[in-house]
Amino acid sequence: MHNFIKGVAAAALMAMPVSAFAEAESDDPIIIVQNNWTSQLVLSYVVGKVLEEKGYTVEYAPSDSQLQFQAIADGDMHFQVEAWEGSMKSAFEKAVENGMVDAGTHSAATREEWWIPNYVLDKCPGAGSWQGLDRCAEMFATAETKPKGRFVGPPADWGKNYADRIDALEMNFEAINVGQAATLWAELQSAYDREEPIVLFNWTPNFIESKFEGQFVDFPAPSAACNEVKEWGPNPNATGDCGAPHSGWLKKAAWSGLAEKYPGAWGVMQNVDFTNAQIAAAALLVDVDGMEPEEAADKWIEDNKDIVASW
């Protein structure tokens, strides 16, 4: 669209006294994507404020976590600070094919797996591993899943199939998928307040760690063979009888035109790097200390001056 309009504009303005285009870099706003979870909001403000400090105009645009990548590929939005392997891998890769740029990987590692609150261990001491959890399956049953235990699964559109893993490991569980992440947290909050046994899908880093005590359930470590060789793993007759990777990537995504249009900003974006602890600290400021995401970003920048300066 820019080319089209600019073409028309150039033709229309031919006769006018066109003074120089902006010198090295543009005054046009850099559009940073915002999603609806805490760490992403704070970190996107952090990057935005650093860029503003350097004299760029920054705008923030809220977006759905899947739709955003196509928008970045098209240049409608310019930068996403948190792209998760677990929930966004396919949309991310599809957008890279369509011209989006992979702007590097954070030091932070992500993990997603079945997760239990700690009080479950009092009632079912073995629940830390999948065999132990399976032995207590009935404890997690609800009216609909009886006698099987209920596993509260990830949002239906995240493209994970835990029913397959349950089958492969011959576990006595049924996966009930939710509609959105907030549903998971509502289920967790409700069960947690009443200390009712629950096992649900969770990931790290997110704000749950700072509000709820719990741990991931151990599954057989994943390997390439797990998904190809039937004999591999606890069940000799099935593939997919293993857990999810313990460290998935957390990437940055950017529009392909950035390097040309805002070389300085592009340099900063490539250097931006967060660790798990830094992300958790950012989320904590909002989720526990009750700041607004924007205030939290100011605080975070103040607390991490050296890191910011190194970008």
Binding site: W37, A61, A71, W185, A186
Partner: peptide, 17 residues
Amino acid sequence: AGAQGLGHKLLYSLQQL
């Protein structure tokens, strides 16, 4: 679809319980 304002804040608050 990317409109800022009350709706965005509302969804975000719900996401954080």
